[in-house]
Amino acid sequence: MGTGQTTSPSPSPSGSTTPPACNPGTGNIAQGKPATASGSTQTYGAGNVVDGDANSYWESANNAFPQWVQVDLGCSLSLARVTLKLPPSASWGARTETLSVQGSTDGSAFSTLVGSAGYTFDPATGNTVTITLPSTAVRYLRLNVTGNTGWPAGQLSEFQVFAS
């Protein structure tokens, strides 16, 4: 195929259209995907967690736990892990955020993939946390934040998702 051409879904024998296969590719499959949150403060919206910039971030409303941020991957995929980041600046002191990871195929009914636990973000080690996921196929991946020792809100600069 030439540059700029795409394939159309093929009709099935019954005449209905089959959607193209879901191919996550490699690398961070959440980057550039739609992100939403239970709420945010000022200009620190959910889109900041999928923009590829570790210096921008999402921040929920203060003193209102639980809060969540989620990404729509576009189709159900079996996932391997998430990498969570806060801004790398040393001005972001070490903190522990208590969170769980939830997944959904329809964006309405969520199940817990990884139970609630405290994850320490430390600028001395890049303010990065990696969480291994069970191989359950989900389209929507949500972080449910219930605590933060560094600020009374959920905070996250990058929500990276990697397929298995």
Results as ranks from 00 to 15, higher is better:
89 S>D: 15
94 A>C: 08
91 S>C: 10
75 C>M: 08
86 L>N: 14
102 Q>G: 04
107 G>C: 01
100 S>M: 03
77 L>Y: 15
66 P>V: 06
72 D>A: 00
103 G>I: 01
82 V>A: 09
92 W>Y: 15
107 G>I: 00
81 R>C: 06
71 V>N: 07
91 S>M: 12
71 V>M: 06
74 G>L: 01
86 L>F: 08
62 N>H: 13
73 L>P: 03
102 Q>C: 03
103 G>W: 01
99 L>N: 08
83 T>D: 10
77 L>G: 12
101 V>R: 02
72 D>G: 01
75 C>E: 08
93 G>K: 12
105 T>Y: 01
69 V>F: 02
78 S>Q: 07
73 L>R: 03
102 Q>I: 04
64 A>K: 11
104 S>Y: 05
79 L>E: 02
80 A>M: 08
104 S>V: 04
66 P>H: 07
93 G>Q: 12
92 W>T: 14
84 L>K: 02
63 N>I: 08
104 S>C: 05
73 L>F: 04
68 W>P: 08
95 R>G: 03
98 T>E: 02
89 S>M: 10
97 E>D: 12
75 C>N: 10
93 G>V: 10
77 L>S: 14
84 L>N: 03
85 K>H: 13
85 K>F: 09
106 D>A: 00
86 L>T: 12
77 L>I: 15
65 F>D: 10
82 V>Y: 05
67 Q>N: 13
93 G>P: 05
67 Q>E: 14
97 E>Y: 07
75 C>P: 11
105 T>S: 12
78 S>T: 13
74 G>K: 00
64 A>E: 07
78 S>M: 03
67 Q>M: 11
74 G>I: 00
91 S>H: 11
88 P>Q: 08
101 V>M: 05
82 V>W: 05
80 A>S: 15
93 G>F: 06
97 E>I: 12
61 A>Y: 09
61 A>K: 13
80 A>T: 10
91 S>E: 14
78 S>K: 09
68 W>K: 06
69 V>T: 06
76 S>W: 09
103 G>Q: 04
64 A>Y: 07
67 Q>R: 13
62 N>C: 07
67 Q>I: 10
74 G>F: 00
78 S>W: 02
98 T>P: 00
104 S>G: 04
102 Q>S: 04
89 S>W: 10
85 K>G: 12
63 N>P: 06
87 P>V: 07
85 K>W: 08
76 S>R: 11
70 Q>G: 02
71 V>P: 05
64 A>V: 06
69 V>C: 04
92 W>V: 15
67 Q>F: 10
77 L>T: 15
98 T>S: 05
78 S>F: 02
78 S>H: 03
